[in-house]
Design a binder for these strands. Structure first.
Lengths: 343, 343
DNA sequence: CTGAAAGCGCTTACAG
DNA sequence: CTGAAAGCGCTTACAG
């Protein structure tokens, strides 16, 4: 079913059909002709061949999401959901590729995408960090999703981690906690990103800590201390870190955990020490993952705005006026039962 | 950078370049010519335009994953990971679209994909169920991923849920449980799929139950009973179901939960009734999601083979000889500390 | 062994 | 207002 067949059926030239179907009005086709073309196209169930159109116009109605692990790991991939929603409104479809953080794979994948005439790229990271986008990317419009440029400027969308840090501390302050608040989940000196992603310094960590310190400083307080984890912010990490903390004789009134999995581990360590949440120790964390709903009591967690990140990134990609600046999306606190009054 | 430029630089015809670059040997080009073309292509950094090639050959090196929620929800999307791995080996890239289970969106999306000359489709479901693939799909090779055809036959890959059911029961039998094993997570009569997906009868439920019953029957036993949930196999569902069960005066020695989230809720209900896992009650579940690691003790859970499902689906898609049959992939038990000896 | 030519299905200046 | 023609970048029978 080609445009030529539609033209034949309508008794007009191929040009005329093309003009009608692409909505060009500068040719002032007669209403009657326009109608005849429309009718013929519909009767034949004609759909334009996008490959041919792309070859001719250089536009494909196709965007790619290039990420480290986003589409293959849990949770983070709600970004894909937001992106797909926004793309559907623009009649555009999405290539998805994960590079596992491997530069060689990344180059190969981007080459392969460029060969296919894509209209733009969302360059995404599983967690918030600074990245150096590959040089190839400059051949096409792109937006950084959940990451910021390590050097220079670029259009980027990230969660507002500093504000989230402030919110976490303010929630505890509101319940009367103040001088015995610990942060669980800093990284060992020289390690910036856990076992699986050494060197990928998560902005989430530094910015959340900064926000926490800001909020505490506002009331003349400071963190009682921070507790390191060895690994990747897992449940085991959280359990070990809090076990170690309690072994030092510390008496935390509240814990701010780097993420939900660490908080789940904190629950376990507290439980083993016969400390109750929230009666003895309050806990807040970040992520808003399914884990926050699966532990008892449900965790007060500041949720990553995954869907909104994906959506905004697409909007920026299509916005011709968009400046190369970093957009920060608010994180929302989802309250559970893990925060109670300070003793 | 086009093929014509390579031809000019090498001093040969465009045909010759095409033959060399596509690896056609039936033309018996001289070694010297072949070499000259290779060198010219490399020096110019030539990469073929896939759009032009697709227009000419009708093949695009592109596959689409069409699903309800797979790429936008947690956990299930590890299927994407498996698919991407297998596709990379075949130099093929992946379109991802989620239809939210809406037939209108699905039709629109498949039309849009067909317009782009895709080589095949993976038609996927978030959870294992029977589907009626849209008629449009027959225009292109396809494989059902995590679902089976409601009528007729098709190439399909699903987890071996019956075997998983048997494994769950056998694990409990091994620890001496027998006559007080309950299943948590059946659906109310007439409801087949929870609030969000009414009517999407999950095969997971019926097949896991069947496996459980088989294994128990093998030793002359049967389930003590089943407990319904109202909703979508959430933590709240599990908590309520087990609370209700205990209120009846039942004394389960072990629970088999429909999934990890339900098990997390079961833990909570048991804990509130001052019953310990596994000393008082053993628990096993299905999924192998991050939740199974976040609860205490870690849950013995039979993991969905997500990555393997995705990988196998791609292999079937590219296998010209593949018959329209259902392939079942083994689920693997990941042992936690939630199963102990029967009292 | 090589090269000129047709054609995949479109869009778009350009001439009428 | 309309139509013939060129061309996007390839592949591939076909003639030499």
């Amino acid at each position: 079913m080609t445009l030529a067949q539609v033209a034949e059926r309508a008794g007009v030239s191929r040009s005329a059909v093309s003009f009608v179907l692409t909505g060009r009005t500068d040719q002032r086709l007669s209403v009657e002709t326009t109608e005849r073309v429309r009718k013929a196209a519909e009767e034949l169930g004609y759909r334009p061949n996008m490959t041919a159109r792309t070859l001719r116009t250089g536009r494909s109605g196709t965007v790619a999401l290039v990420s480290d692990f986003v589409s293959s790991t849990s949770h983070a991939n709600s970004m894909v959901r937001g992106a797909l929603d926004a793309l559907r409104e623009r009649d555009t479809i999405l290539f998805t590729v994960d590079t596992q953080g491997d530069a060689g794979q990344e180059k190969q994948v981007i080459d392969s995408l460029l060969d296919r005439t894509i209209d733009g790229v969302l360059y995404a990271s599983m967690f918030t960090r600074a990245v150096t986008p590959p040089a190839l990317l400059t051949q096409v419009p792109f937006v950084l999703l959940n990451c910021v440029p390590a050097v220079g400027v670029a259009r980027a969308v990230v969660p507002d981690e500093v504000a989230a840090g402030r919110d976490s501390a303010n929630e505890l302050l509101r319940f009367g906690h103040r001088d015995h608040i610990w942060f669980i989940g800093t990284l060992p000196p020289g390690v910036t990103g856990g076992l699986s992603w050494r060197g990928w310094a998560p902005l989430a960590l530094s910015e959340r800590l900064e926000g926490i310190r800001q909020a505490l400083a506002d009331v003349g307080a400071e963190l009682a201390g921070t507790q390191m984890v060895d690994d990747d912010w897992t449940t085991e990490d959280g359990r070990e870190a809090v076990t170690r903390l309690l072994a030092t004789g510390a008496h935390p009134s509240a814990l701010i955990c780097a993420n939900d999995a660490v908080a789940a581990g904190a629950y376990q360590a507290l439980h083993r020490a016969e400390l109750r949440v929230p009666e003895d120790v309050s806990v807040v964390a970040f992520d808003g993952s399914p884990i926050s709903r699966a532990i008892d009591p449900p965790l007060t967690s500041i949720a990553l705005p995954q869907v909104e990140l994906g959506r905004r990134a697409v909007e920026l990609l299509f916005d011709k006026e968009a400046q190369p600046v970093i957009h920060r999306i608010a994180m929302t606190m989802v309250r559970g039962g893990s925060v109670g009054p300070a003793r």
